[in-house]
Design a protein around this nucleic acid. Structure first.
Length: 851
RNA sequence: GCGGGUGUGGCGGAAUGGUAGACGCGACAGACUCAAACUCUGUUUCCGCAAGGAGUGUCGGUUCGAGUCCGACCACCCGCACCA
C-alpha cells in the first residue's frame, strides 16, 4: 500500500494539466464565457498567505465554473510600478527594473506550485513597455477627448530631502527619512476629469446588484452628492478684489444662527492677507505644517484666527460676522469658505466655545422650548423640528423643508442660488518619481503642451538613472527629457512626471482580453470576454481602485477602447477579508519605528526579542503589508505539506469576507485530513462488500454533500463547503454500504473536492476508475428525490424554552402535531396541569406552547 | 474627525426570527503498540453529583420565540484621495 505524497502527485498533475492545455482561455462561441479575476499582486518578491487565500478563492470559482461548462478566462499579472522599487534602490542599491523583474520571477516561481488554473500565456507586468505604451496611447486619446487637464495642486514637500512625499511617508507632520517638518507646496500637475462623471458613477451604483452593499455605500458617500446654497457675503475691510466672499452650505436653513464665517488656510483671501499681515502669515504657516491628507487636517486640534475682516449677513446688512481662518476648512470642498452655525454643527459648536462666539439656536425639538445648549443640536434633516429663527420666521417643518425654503428665498432675493455639488475631486495622476508610466507629453516653448506622436510610443523609461540622491531621477537625467516638439520640430522638453500607479491598475482587466495586441484592446476579444463576471479582492480597495477603474472603463468606452456594456467593468464583486498578523518593531535613535520580519523575531510567553536579545514591540492583528514587514511565507507549508494543504487550510474555517489572523497551528491537522481522504480512497478502491441496505443512505449523504458544497461555492461560503466535505468524509468512512456504492460516493467526493484540492482530487479520481481528468469532468448534480426527508424532529418549547422533542412524518397536519406534542410525557410533566393559553406550530420547524 | 464594518466555547467558526455552538483545531479518556509516533473510538459552552440554571461585547426594546430585528453605548478593524 502506497502513501499520500503531495510532492510527487502535485508536480505530476500540474504537468498533466499543462500538457492538456486545460486552462488556456479560448473564445468559444458555442459556450457561455466566464471571466474570473483576482486583484493582481504587487511584486514584493514573496507571496504571503493573503495571496494564497485570494488566488485560491478565485481558483475555486474558476474550476467550478469550468466544470459547469463555461469557457473560463482566469489570468494573472503584476502591478509592477510603484515606490517600493525606488526605495529598494535607495536602500540597497540596484535598479528598480531589475529588482521588479527579479521579484516577479521569484513570485511566479512561488505561485506556480499552488496549481492555480491560470492561463499563464496571458501574463504581463504593468512596467512592460508593451503595456504602459498602450496606456500612454489612451492618455493621449483622453487628452483629445478633454478628460485630462493641468492645474496647480498641493503636495507634501520635504525641505531637507528636497522631494515630494507620499502621505504614507509623512509621520506626525514630519518626513519619514529626514525627520524634517513637512511643508505644503504647490505644483502644476496632471488631472483626470473624474468629477465630470460623478453623477453617472453615483447613479450607476444602483445597477451593481452583485456588489456588496457596503462597498456601494462607501462609494456613494465618497462621491458625496449634496444639495445646498451657494451665496456670497459682502465683506467689510477686506483687501482689494475681495469685495465678496463666496460660501457653500448644505444647511442654509440655519442662516439666522450664523455667528462667524470661516475660510481655509489655502483660500485666496488667506493668501492675500498672508502677504501683508505677519500674524496671519505665522498662523497660516502653522496650518500648512500639517500634511495634505484629509485625515491629518480633520484630526488636528481645531484652530482659528480672527482676520479682522467682517462680512454682512445677507438677510440683515447691519449684522456683521467675523471672518476666521480655520485649519479644519478644506479648500477642495465647496468654495473653501463656510459660515458657522454653532447651535447645529458640533464642530462649529466647539469652535465657537473656544473663541467665545455666540451660539444661537435656529430650531428646537418639536414640543420643546429654547434653552441654553451644552452641545450642538443636530437632528436628521428628515425630522420635523420647530423653527424659532427660520429664514421666514417661526414654523414647524422638517430640515429638508427648511433648506428648500431658504434656497427659494435666496434665489428670490437674488443673493444666492441652489446648487448640487459633489465631494469627489478630480484625480491627480502626476507623480514626481521614476518608477511609473511616463506621461507622454512634450513641453515646447512655442506650441506649449503637446502630446507625443503615437508612432513614437512608448515613451520608455531610461535605464541609466541614479538613486544616490532624493528627488526625481527623470528630472535630473542629462539627456532623457531633451526631445523635439511633435508639432513644430523645435527643441523641447519631455514631461518628467510619471503616472499614479492606480492608472496602471485601472484597465489591466481589459488588457487581459488581448494581452499581446498592439492596440490597448481588440474589439472582438473585449466583446467576448468583458465584463469581468467575478472580481475578487481586498476590502481596502473598496473606494479608490474600484472607483478609478469604473471611471477608466467609461473613459475607454468614450475613446473607443471598450464596448458600452463594459462601462461598468465588474459584474460581481467579492471583497475578501484581510490576512492579519502581528507587527514587530524597534525604535531607531530618533524614536522612529524600524520593522522586523516574523522570521527574525523570537516569540516567547513573556514577549518578543530579536536574535541579539533586543526587545521588540508587538502590535496585534494588523493588515499584512510589505512596509510593516508583518508578512508570513506560505512556502514553508507548501514545502512541508504540499499545495493542497495550503489551499484547503485557507479555505476552511474563516468565512472569506472576514479578516483572519494568521497562526501557524493547524496546517499539520489539515495535512492529516487529506491523508485520511487518500487512505479512505485507497481502501474503498479495494472494497468488495456486496451491495446492501446501507447503499441508499450513502447515496442520500452524497446528494446532500453535492447540494451543500455547491451552495457554499455559489454563495462564496467556502468554509461551509469545506465543512460539508468533512461531514461527508465522516459519513463515508463509517458507512457499511457496498463497495460499488462507496466507489460512486468517493468519486463524487473527488469532484466536490477538486476546486479546493485539485491535485488530490485527480489522484482519488484515478484510483476509483474515473475517466479522464477530474478537472474536465462535469460538475455532479444532486438527485432531488434523495434530498427529501420523510421524518422530521420537532423541538417543543414551553414559553420559549426547549423542553422536549418529537419525531413526526414531514407531511403531518399541524392539528395532529399539536395533539402529539401535548401528549408527550416531558411536556405533560413540565406543564404540570397549567392551562395552555396558546400553541404555535411552525411546520417542519418548531412547536411553542404558551402557558 | 468623517465614512464603512466586525463582536458567539480554550481557539477558527455554524445557525431563511424557530433545538445556539454544525464542521474543524486543541484538550481529555479509551483501543492498538514492549513503548512511542501514526491510526481508530468516544467526551468536550459554563456552573452543578444531579434535578436544574446561566449563556452570543454592554444596557434597553419589539415578539409566542432574538445571535438574528430596533435604539443607545463599548471595544477592535478598514478607508480618508501620493502605500499598493
Amino acid at each position: 500500500m502506497s502513501r499520500y505524497e503531495p510532492g510527487l502527485i502535485e508536480a505530476k498533475w500540474q504537468e498533466a494539466w499543462d500538457k492538456a492545455g486545460v486552462f488556456t482561455a479560448t473564445r468559444d462561441a458555442a459556450r457561455p464565457k466566464y471571466y474570473v479575476l483576482e486583484m493582481f499582486p504587487y511584486p514584493s518578491g514573496r507571496i504571503h498567505m493573503g495571496h494564497v487565500r485570494n488566488y485560491t478563492m478565485g481558483d475555486v470559482v474558476a474550476r467550478y465554473k469550468s466544470s459547469c461548462g463555461y469557457s473560463v478566462l482566469h489570468p494573472m499579472g503584476w502591478d509592477a510600478f510603484g515606490m517600493p522599487a525606488e526605495n529598494a534602490a535607495m536602500e540597497r542599491g540596484g535598479h528598480p527594473k531589475d529588482w521588479t523583474y527579479g521579484n516577479i520571477a521569484d513570485m511566479r516561481g512561488q505561485m506556480k506550485p499552488l496549481g492555480l488554473s491560470i492561463d499563464w500565456s496571458r501574463e504581463f507586468a504593468t512596467c512592460d513597455p508593451e503595456y504602459y505604451g498602450q496606456q500612454q496611447a489612451m492618455f493621449i486619446d483622453m487628452m483629445e477627448r478633454g478628460l485630462v487637464y493641468r492645474k496647480a495642486a498641493v503636495v507634501n514637500w520635504d525641505p531637507v530631502d528636497m522631494t515630494v512625499l507620499a502621505n504614507e511617508q509623512v509621520i506626525d507632520g514630519k518626513g519619514w527619512r529626514s525627520g524634517a517638518a513637512v511643508e505644503r507646496r504647490e505644483l502644476t500637475q496632471w488631472f483626470f476629469k473624474i468629477s465630470d462623471m460623478a453623477g453617472d458613477l453615483l447613479d450607476a451604483l444602483d445597477g451593481l446588484k452583485d456588489w456588496p452593499e457596503k462597498v456601494r455605500l462607501m462609494q456613494a458617500n465618497w462621491i458625496g452628492k449634496s444639495r445646498g446654497l451657494q451665496f456670497s457675503f459682502d465683506t467689510v475691510g477686506a483687501p482689494a478684489g475681495f469685495d465678496r466672499l463666496e460660501v457653500y452650505t448644505t444647511r442654509p436653513d440655519t442662516l439666522m444662527g450664523a455667528s462667524f464665517a470661516g475660510i481655509s488656510p489655502d483660500h485666496p483671501l488667506a493668501k492675500a492677507l498672508e502677504a501683508t499681515n505677519p500674524a496671519i502669515a505665522a498662523f497660516v504657516a502653522e496650518c500648512r505644517r500639517v500634511g495634505t491628507s484629509e485625515e491629518a487636517l480633520q484630526t488636528a486640534e481645531k484652530l482659528g484666527l480672527d482676520t479682522g475682516i467682517r462680512v454682512r449677513h445677507p438677510l440683515d446688512p447691519a449684522w456683521e460676522l467675523p471672518v476666521y481662518i480655520a485649519n479644519f476648512i478644506l479648500m477642495d470642498y465647496g468654495t473653501g469658505a463656510i459660515f458657522g452655525c454653532p447651535a447645529h454643527d458640533q464642530r462649529d459648536f466647539e469652535f465657537a466655545t473656544k473663541y467665545h462666539l455666540p451660539i444661537t439656536p435656529v430650531f428646537v425639538a418639536e414640543g420643546t422650548d429654547e434653552t441654553t445648549l451644552t452641545e450642538a443640536f443636530t437632528p436628521m434633516k428628515s425630522e420635523r423640528v420647530r423653527y424659532i429663527r427660520g429664514v421666514n420666521g417661526s414654523t414647524l417643518m422638517t430640515g429638508d423643508e427648511g433648506v428648500a425654503e431658504a434656497i427659494a428665498l435666496a434665489e428670490q432675493r437674488g443673493f444666492g442660488q441652489g446648487v448640487t455639488k459633489f465631494r469627489l475631486r478630480d484625480w491627480g495622476v502626476s507623480r514626481q518619481r521614476y518608477w511609473g508610466c511616463p506621461i507622454p507629453v512634450v513641453h515646447c516653448a512655442t506650441c506649449g503642451v503637446v502630446p507625443e506622436k503615437k508612432e513614437n510610443l512608448p515613451v520608455e523609461l531610461p535605464y541609466d538613472v541614479s538613486f544616490d540622491k532624493p528627488g526625481n531621477p527623470l528630472d535630473r537625467h542629462p539627456t532623457w527629457a531633451k526631445t523635439t516638439c511633435p508639432k513644430c520640430g523645435a527643441a523641447a522638453r519631455r514631461e518628467t512626471d510619471t503616472m499614479d500607479t492606480f492608472v496602471d491598475s485601472s484597465w489591466y482587466y481589459a488588457r487581459f482580453t488581448a494581452p499581446r495586441a498592439n492596440t490597448p484592446t481588440v474589439a472582438e476579444d473585449a466583446d467576448y470576454w468583458m465584463n469581468v463576471d467575478q472580481y475578487i479582492g481586498g476590502i481596502e480597495h473598496a473606494i479608490l481602485h474600484l472607483l478609478y477603474s469604473r471611471f477608466f472603463a467609461r473613459a475607454m468606452n468614450e475613446t473607443g477602447h471598450l464596448p458600452a456594456k463594459a462601462r461598468e467593468p465588474f459584474n460581481a464583486l467579492f471583497t475578501q477579508g484581510m490576512v492579519t498578523h502581528e507587527i514587530y518593531l524597534t525604535r531607531d535613535g530618533n524614536g522612529r519605528p524600524v520593522y522586523h520580519l516574523p522570521e527574525d523575531v523570537i516569540r516567547s510567553e513573556t514577549g518578543a526579542t530579536l536574535a541579539d536579545g533586543t526587545a521588540v514591540e508587538v502590535i496585534p492583528s494588523a493588515k499584512m503589508s510589505k512596509s510593516k514587514k508583518n508578512v508570513v511565507d506560505p512556502m514553508n507549508i507548501i514545502r512541508d505539506f504540499g499545495a493542497d494543504t495550503a489551499r484547503w487550510f485557507v479555505m476552511s474555517d474563516s468565512p472569506p469576507e472576514r479578516d483572519v489572523e494568521w497562526t501557524s497551528a493547524g496546517a499539520e491537522a489539515t495535512a492529516k485530513h487529506l491523508g485520511r481522504v487518500w487512505r479512505l480512497a485507497d481502501e474503498i478502491s479495494r472494497d468488495e462488500t456486496p451491495a446492501g441496505d446501507e447503499d441508499i443512505a450513502l447515496a442520500r449523504a452524497a446528494a446532500r454533500a453535492i447540494q451543500d458544497v455547491t451552495q457554499g461555492i455559489e454563495g462564496f461560503a467556502f468554509n461551509k463547503s469545506v465543512a460539508a466535505l468533512y461531514a461527508f468524509t465522516n459519513t463515508l468512512s463509517k458507512s457499511k454500504a457496498g463497495g460499488g456504492a462507496k466507489r460512486d460516493a468517493m468519486r463524487t467526493m473527488a469532484q466536490l473536492m477538486s476546486p479546493m484540492v485539485p491535485h488530490l482530487a485527480e489522484e482519488v479520481w484515478v484510483m476509483l476508475g474515473g475517466e479522464g481528468l477530474v478537472a474536465r469532468a462535469p460538475w455532479p448534480k444532486a438527485d432531488p428525490a434523495l434530498l427529501v426527508e420523510d421524518n422530521v424532529t420537532l423541538p417543543i418549547q414551553i414559553n420559549g424554552k426547549r423542553r422536549a422533542e418529537i419525531s413526526v412524518p414531514k407531511t403531518m397536519p399541524a392539528a395532529e402535531v399539536e395533539k402529539i406534542a401535548l401528549a408527550d410525557e416531558d411536556v405533560v410533566r413540565f406543564l404540570a396541569g397549567q392551562p395552555v393559553k396558546k400553541i404555535i406550530v411552525v411546520p417542519g420547524r418548531i412547536i411553542n406552547v404558551v402557558v
